[in-house]
Design a protein around this nucleic acid. Structure first.
Lengths: 266, 266
DNA sequence: TTGACGCGCTTACGTCGTAAGAGCAACCTC
DNA sequence: GAGGTTGCTCTTACGACGTAAGCGCGTCAA
C-alpha cells in the first residue's frame, strides 16, 4: 500500500539488446526456457514491454536465427586457393558458429532463412565460385548441399552435447548403453580410436563431398569441351556459353567490390 | 440438466491408434496444431484419457518420430549392386518417406533418435557395407553422413512445400521476390530449367558425396595394401586385420537373417 | 511551459500440459 | 448369475504461456 507506483526509470532497451538477452537466455536455459516473461525479467522489465521491440514471439525467434547466422562472416579472400578449399573453410567455420549456440539449431532447421543478409552471403559465395569457373547453377547446388550438410550434421552432433535437452547421453553414455551382442558393428565402429571425434568425422565427409563435386564439375567441363552435351553437361554448355559475357562482367566487378562487400564494415 | 453423465462406452484406444491420430493431426494442422485436447477430440475422448497411452506429450512426440522412422524400410537386398548403389537407394527412399510428413521434420531434427528399432536399421546397413568390404568405421561414417545430409536437405526443402508453416513462399514466389539486380547469381541459378527440381538437386549432391566416399575408401584400401599405413589408412589396417574373423562370421550370418530381418513382416 | 509521443505498466483472456482423484464398464473368479 | 478388481474415462483445477487492450508517467521538441 505504501509502494504507490514509484518512478519507472527508462530502461533503454533496444531490439538488439532484447535479441542479445534472448540468445543468452536460450544458451543457458535452452529453447524451452525462453518465454516473454522470463526474457522480460532478465532485462528488468515486464513481458509486455518487449512488444515495443518485437511484434511477437515468432519474430523474436526469427531474430535469433538472424543473429546467429550473422556471426558467420564470409572469410577474407584466401589467395591462391582452389574453390574446394574455400568451400571447405566456409563449412568448417559455419559449423563452429552453429556449435557455439546449439540450442538455437532447431530454429535454424525450422524457420525460413531468406533474410536479405543471408541472401547476400550466398550471393557472395556464388560470386567466388563462379569466378573460379563454375556455373551459377553448379555453384548454388554445391553451396546448398554443403550448408545443408553442415546443418544436418550439427543438429545431430548437438544432441550429444552434454548440457542439452534431449541429450541425456553423451557419446560415452551411449557406448555404455549399447549392447554389443545386439549391435556389434555399431559398437565396434564407435569404440575405435577411443573418444569419438566429431570434428574428424565431419571433415572426412566434407572432404569426400567436395572431392565428388570437384569431379562432377571437371567431368562436366570435359564433356562440354568435347562437344558432347548430355545430361548435366548440356545444361552447363547452355549456361556457360550464354552467360559468358555476364560472367566476365561479374568477374570484372569483383575486385571493385572486394573491399566494400567482402569485409563487412571491417 | 437432463444429461446426467450418460454411458461412457469404452473407445478402444491403443497407443498405436493415438500415435496414428497424432500423425494425421500433425500432417493436416502442423506441429503447432497438435495439442492433447485436440488430439483427444479427434479420437472422441477427453485430453486426460490420452495419458493412459502416453506418459506425457514429449513421449508422444518421440512416438511420432519413431513412427515415421519406422516407415523407412531397409530395402530388399539388391543383387549385384555396389555399395554406393545401395546407399543411394536408401537415401532416396529415406528422403521420400520424410517428405511425406514434412511437419514432423522439426522433431526429427531435435529429438534423440536412438530407439532400438532405429539402431537396428543402422546395424543392418552397417552389415551390408562391411560385407561389401568397408571398415565398420567407414561404414558408420558414410551412413551417418548420408542420413545427416538427407535430413538437412529435406528440412530446407520442406519449408518450401506450399501448405506449410514458415513457407509463405513457394520457390516461385521466391523467384518473384528476388531482386535480380541485387542477387544476380542466385536468380540466374534458380531460373535455369524453369521449375526448380529439388529431386535432381538432391541426387546430384548425393552422387557427388558417394563418389567422394568411394574414392576415399578405395584410396584407404590401396594404401593399406601398399603397406603404407598413414592417417585413416592406418586405422583401416588395424581394424581390418584384427576383425577379419569377426567380419567373416557376420557375413556368414547374413544370409540366414536375410528373410527374417530384411523384410519386416512382409 | 506545454504538448505529444514513447515506453513501461497492469489487467485480462484463452490455451496449453498435466496432477489428482472420482466413478463407471468390462472382465475374472466363483 | 454375483461380487470384486482392474483399468479406462471423466471432471476439476493449477500454473505458465502468448498477447490484446489500454493507462499514465518521462522525456523531449516547440
Amino acid at each position: 500500500m505504501v509502494n504507490r507506483r514509484r518512478s519507472r526509470p527508462r530502461v533503454g532497451l533496444t531490439r538488439e539488446r532484447v535479441l542479445d538477452a534472448a540468445l543468452a537466455l536460450v544458451d543457458s536455459d535452452g529453447l524451452a526456457g525462453l518465454s516473454m516473461r522470463k526474457l522480460g525479467a532478465a532485462l528488468g522489465v515486464e513481458a509486455m514491454s518487449l512488444y515495443h521491440y518485437v511484434p511477437n514471439k515468432d519474430a523474436l525467434l526469427d531474430g535469433l536465427v538472424e543473429l546467429v547466422l550473422g556471426m558467420v562472416t564470409p572469410e577474407p579472400p584466401p589467395q591462391h586457393s582452389s574453390w574446394p578449399d574455400w568451400v571447405r573453410q566456409f563449412a568448417v567455420d559455419y559449423r563452429q558458429v552453429l556449435l557455439r549456440h546449439p540450442a538455437v539449431l532447431p530454429l535454424m532447421a525450422t524457420r525460413p532463412m531468406p533474410t536479405t543478409s543471408a541472401l547476400t552471403t550466398v550471393e557472395l559465395g556464388l560470386r567466388r565460385l563462379v569466378r573460379a569457373g563454375l556455373t551459377a547453377r553448379q555453384a548454388l547446388d554445391i553451396l546448398n548441399s554443403v550448408t545443408t550438410f553442415v546443418l544436418g550434421h550439427v543438429l545431430i552432433e548437438a544432441r550429444k552435447v552434454p548440457g542439452h535437452e534431449a541429450a541425456a547421453f553423451t557419446p560415452n553414455a551411449m557406448l555404455v548403453d549399447l549392447d554389443e551382442e545386439v549391435f556389434p558393428l555399431i559398437s565396434r565402429a564407435m569404440k575405435k580410436e577411443g573418444a569419438f571425434d566429431e570434428q574428424a568425422r565431419f571433415e572426412y565427409a566434407l572432404n569426400a563431398m567436395l572431392e565428388g563435386f570437384a569431379l562432377a564439375v571437371a567431368r562436366a567441363a570435359d564433356q562440354a569441351a568435347a562437344g558432347h552435351p548430355v545430361g548435366r553437361a548440356a545444361e552447363r554448355v547452355d549456361g556457360q556459353v550464354a552467360d559468358q559475357d555476364q560472367v566476365a562482367g561479374q568477374v570484372a566487378g569483383l575486385d571493385a567490390d572486394r573491399s566494400s562487400t567482402d569485409r563487412p564494415t571491417g
